[in-house]
Deep mutational scan, measured.
Amino acid sequence: CHSECLGNCSQPDDPTKCVACRNFYLDGRCVETCPPPYYHFQDWRCVNFSFCQDLHHKCKNSRRQGCHQYVIHNNKCIPECPSGYTMNSSNLLCTPCLGPCPKVCHLLEGEKTIDSVTSAQELRGCTVINGSLIINIRGGNNLAAELEANLGLIEEISGYLKIRRSYALVSLSFFRKLRLIRGETLEIGNYSFYALDNQNLRQLWDWSKHNLTITQGKLFFHYNPKLCLSEIHKMEEVSGTKGRQERNDIALKTNGDQASCENELLKFSYIRTSFDKILLRWEPYWPPDFRDLLGFMLFYKEAPYQNVTEFDGQDACGSNSWTVVDIDPPLRSNDPKSQNHPGWLMRGLKPWTQYAIFVKTLVTFSDERRTYGAKSDIIYVQTDATNPSVPLDPISVSNSSSQIILKWKPPSDPNGNITHYLVFWERQAEDSELFELDYCLKGLKLPSRTWSPPFESEDSQKHNQSEYEDSAGECCSCPKTDSQILKELEESSFRKTFEDYLHNVVFVPRKT
């Protein structure tokens, strides 16, 4: 048989008469490798580009789960590009990614509803959504962080984005990388972005840091009482949809009607710091009717980097990364020049730590249904340095008659930039024990000054392991946590139920 035959053949030295091919099969003959313009397919066939392209389009058009959109890589027609490569849609070739590779997620039936953290986790790592997304989240724990972890990498949506009755959302900033909504599939009414009845939605994105392009379709905003109209108009300008909307697409009466839409800028007039305090004062603000001013709200939190936005980490279910302080308005003076500047002394802060701070007014709604208010920009203030805590785990070892090696770990709280350490030492008198000992005694162990690591005695271990207080009263049991108490109650309830079950099964009433 021919060298490319495997198993047997019907005619000697003829690659077209093989029972099976050793390498690849091409047009009725066995070959060692697939010549151009053919590609290896499933490690035994040679196919042309049209064959591989037909497989790709067949799966793409069917949208069946589990099928493969075949691509070409290293002269092979394979189910998908290997790690580190992405497909070129024009020629199906796998090309190296520039940075992290995109991950295209194809949605069944063309859309997916995100109504819980669990459903959001199914899209973790996706960068391109081939379909439409509907966000409908009523509640949950730590929602802002969970949504950002699972949806934060999405850069492109081919269909539309719909935010509907998501009472738990305060902001859409968890879509931190969303840059493009194509609108290839539109919501009824030709809408590519749809926001309806979101009672706590206050911000779409921080438009000073976020760009969003909507290729096709219109915007729809109705019944978002805490979303200011200025935020919607800003989205029109940034996304390129200005002029597409009709009169009733953006409701003037049901958007922002319960919001404090600040239209003035508060400026800080005085800032002073110490290692654990920050004193702030800002310019006074009074609405047209000074009785509408209820006070100020001061927001602050630790910020290692200057990239904080107002609604980071917030949701309507209680999660809030900001510390909020309510401040009463100052006494009002008739003389504008003698107006008191409101302020606040922030206490209990960490030394040498940068804080993000902003302040906003708290006002009631005027009778004319106009909203007044003022808010400052987010500023960054760093507390002063102070003395560091003591170095940890000092170790001293003498390696000769004239040297001592000293080692330690950095302090747990540096409280500033540590530039150097101060080492103090003092000579001590020799131990009298060394002169009084009889060095001729056998088995004498000389006193040693070398360091030995501390260890816990058996008594201390027994005390720590004991669940009861000892007789001397030195140790006591740790208080039980809520989960331990709940577990004990469940076990007790189970024992009672099981005992009742045994009584009912074992003891049967005697027939009379």
Rank of each mutant, 00 (worst) to 15 (best):
V104L: 07
D292E: 15
S396P: 12
Y160H: 14
R244G: 14
R124H: 15
Q354M: 00
F174G: 02
F358G: 09
L212M: 08
D315T: 13
T309I: 00
F221V: 13
K162Q: 14
R244C: 08
C317R: 03
S321I: 05
P304M: 10
A251M: 11
L153R: 10
I405M: 02
A356V: 02
F175P: 00
A145N: 12
G110Q: 13
T213C: 11
Y270S: 06
D289C: 14
S260Q: 11
P391E: 01
Y160C: 14
Q216R: 06
T213I: 11
I154F: 01
W207E: 02
L178E: 00
S158F: 15
P287L: 09
Q199Y: 10
R179N: 13
I129N: 00
G243E: 14
I163K: 05
G183R: 01
W352K: 13
K301N: 15
D289L: 03
I129L: 12
Y300R: 04
E262S: 05
C126I: 02
D328H: 04
F221A: 15
R164T: 15
S338A: 13
L201P: 00
L362Y: 14
Q382A: 05
N307Y: 02
A356R: 01
S338W: 14
E262L: 15
Y380M: 03
H233F: 02
Q339E: 07
N334C: 10
L147S: 02
A195E: 00
G313K: 14
N307W: 13
F175A: 15
L298R: 00
G159A: 06
C126K: 01
L294T: 06
A195T: 05
S208F: 14
R247N: 04
N150D: 07
L252M: 08
K218C: 04
A374E: 02
K277S: 08
L293S: 04
I114S: 00
L252R: 07
F268I: 06
A316E: 15
T371E: 02
T215M: 11
V359F: 02
V324Y: 14
N263Y: 12
S269Q: 05
F175C: 01
N340S: 06
L180S: 07
R281C: 05
N248V: 04
E368V: 15
S119Y: 10
D393I: 02
D367F: 08
I395P: 01
D289F: 01
D326G: 02
K409E: 15
K277T: 15
N150M: 10
T113H: 09
K350Q: 14
G343E: 15
K277G: 11
D328R: 08
L345D: 13
G189S: 07
D197T: 09
N399M: 10
L201I: 05
A374Y: 07
K350V: 04
V170P: 04
L196I: 14
D377K: 05
P288V: 14
E246A: 04
E156S: 08
G348S: 11
V117T: 04
K337W: 12
V363A: 13
E368D: 14
N198D: 01
E156K: 10
F290L: 08
T353H: 14
L229S: 03
A251P: 07
G159T: 01
L229P: 03
N198R: 00
T213W: 07
Q306K: 14
R244N: 08
D393W: 09
L169I: 02
L161W: 00
D315R: 15
W286M: 04
L298A: 11
D393C: 14
V308K: 04
D377T: 10
K209R: 09
P287H: 12
W408H: 00
E237A: 08
I378P: 02
R244P: 11
A374Q: 05
I327A: 11
K253L: 08
Y160S: 10
E155V: 14
R179P: 00
R347W: 10
L108N: 14
G295I: 06
S132M: 00
G139V: 13
D289Q: 05
G139R: 12
Q199S: 05
C261S: 03
L161R: 01
G348L: 08
G140T: 05
P351T: 03
L362C: 04
L133M: 08
G140S: 12
S158Q: 06
L180Q: 12
G313N: 04
K242R: 11
F221I: 14
G373L: 13
K301G: 04
S401L: 09
G189Q: 01
G139S: 13
N307I: 13
L108H: 12
L280M: 07
L151I: 10
A149H: 14
K209L: 06
I405W: 10
E146F: 11
V359R: 00
K218N: 02
K209I: 07
Y355T: 00
S119C: 09
L212V: 10
N190T: 15
R369D: 05
N255R: 04
K162V: 07
N142T: 07
L294G: 12
E310H: 15
I214Y: 04
R347L: 09
L392C: 13
P225E: 10
T254M: 11
S401R: 15
L294S: 11
S260E: 10
L227K: 00
P388H: 01
Q382V: 02
I405N: 08
S119R: 05
G313H: 07
V170Y: 14
I154Q: 00
I232N: 00
D257Q: 02
K360V: 11
S239G: 05
S333A: 05
L280K: 00
T371F: 05
P342Y: 06
L229F: 15
R332N: 10
P330R: 15
R244Q: 14
D384N: 13
E302F: 11
P394M: 03
I188P: 06
L107Q: 03
A385W: 04
D289A: 12
Y372N: 15
N399L: 10
R332L: 05
S132K: 02
T127Y: 11
L293T: 08
T323D: 14
M297C: 12
L161P: 01
S366L: 02
S366P: 13
R179F: 12
D335R: 11
L406M: 02
T386F: 02
Q382C: 02
G243K: 05
L133K: 00
E283H: 12
L280T: 09
K162C: 15
G217C: 07
R369G: 08
T185R: 08
N200T: 02
F175K: 01
I405S: 04
N211I: 07
L172G: 02
L201K: 00
L153F: 07
I188F: 05
F174N: 02
Q121E: 05
F290Q: 07
N334G: 15
T127I: 11
I404A: 10
I129C: 14
S171W: 03
N150K: 09
D326S: 15
T353Q: 07
R347F: 06
Y191H: 12
K409Q: 14
N320P: 03
F311W: 15
S239E: 04
F299Q: 11
A149V: 13
P351V: 12
L345T: 10
F268D: 00
